[in-house]
Write a protein that binds this DNA or RNA. Sequence first.
DNA 1: AACATAAGTTCAGCATACTGAATAATCAGG
DNA 2: CCTGATTATTCAGTATGCTGAACTTATGTT
Lengths: 170, 170
Amino acid sequence: MNDLPDSAAPPSADATSSFYRNHLSHRAGFLIRRLHQIHLSLFAEECADFGVTPVQYSILTVAAVHPDIDQASLGHEVGVDRATLANVIARLKAHGLISRSKKATDRRVNLIRVTARGSAVLAQMDGAAQRAHERTVAALPENERALFISYLSYLVEAGNEHGRAPLRIG
Amino acid sequence: MNDLPDSAAPPSADATSSFYRNHLSHRAGFLIRRLHQIHLSLFAEECADFGVTPVQYSILTVAAVHPDIDQASLGHEVGVDRATLANVIARLKAHGLISRSKKATDRRVNLIRVTARGSAVLAQMDGAAQRAHERTVAALPENERALFISYLSYLVEAGNEHGRAPLRIG
DNA sequence: AACATAAGTTCAGCATACTGAATAATCAGG
DNA sequence: CCTGATTATTCAGTATGCTGAACTTATGTT
């Protein structure tokens, strides 16, 4: 059932060897996209009961330790651009997990605060979120796992200036 | 300018040590999401002249070596679910890079074919796409780079059943 | 032929992510 | 106190990715 039709059968090796040397599954970007999909799926599976996505969870955890953080700072911490963050914040607010207020001394600024309900959800889903992260790299033996994370971390730091939402590293 | 306001200053280490042990930047899912963003940015930078995104490029390369491939097979090869694929296909068709026809012996099936213009664009952007993939991991020394790719590849294969668009590995 | 079942695709709706433009509020110089 | 530049946020539009439901066409059974 998964067979390709004749016209789409794998081409002979000599006709397309350059394709196979450069196959999707050897391209960094392709693999990263796919591993991201896998993580999203694992997170959804572990955290289905809470209705909180990975990005929402990241935002909640940062907001929880930075009471009344402004949106720009929150975006820098979590690596989410301002437009996306405005959308996510709106959803979190609609679900009652955060509240928003204008800063008294600068009314351009929105201050974000995790509600009591938000804190409760964070506490309840802590284990599930941990498991989702662990399962994403669980297939690697422990030594390689630590190495993989350190490579990831190094690449993220090295490429930090790329994209609209560079992290604040310091 | 990047300083947090007082109310959002980093909390003292003892009050939130569990937070720092479990900081965002040590979570696999967070790092993968961020590295994915970085890759998207690098790809956009390298391939800006062609108006083709990473997923579109993956689809074009697979369709190029599988003439008249059906959408379900294409989705399995590229790791894109059917609904998303329908959208991407529509955009590629709108830009004249692919054409679509009904399969004669099973009119439920759409057959995808890269147009002459699509082939030309693929050929023209080949170098730029390569550079985008290479730059994503360029910060690692060559040995570690190969190792990182092999870890990625291993994790993707191990987690392949997760998500709506598992790859056909074979 | 009639029916149920299955397969391929599309549609509707939500979430994340980006760009560029608009809006609103603040600040710095004169 | 105005004016212009800066900063914070939002809005509009596009792309990817998911789920569940619908639709169309094939297939298998009787």
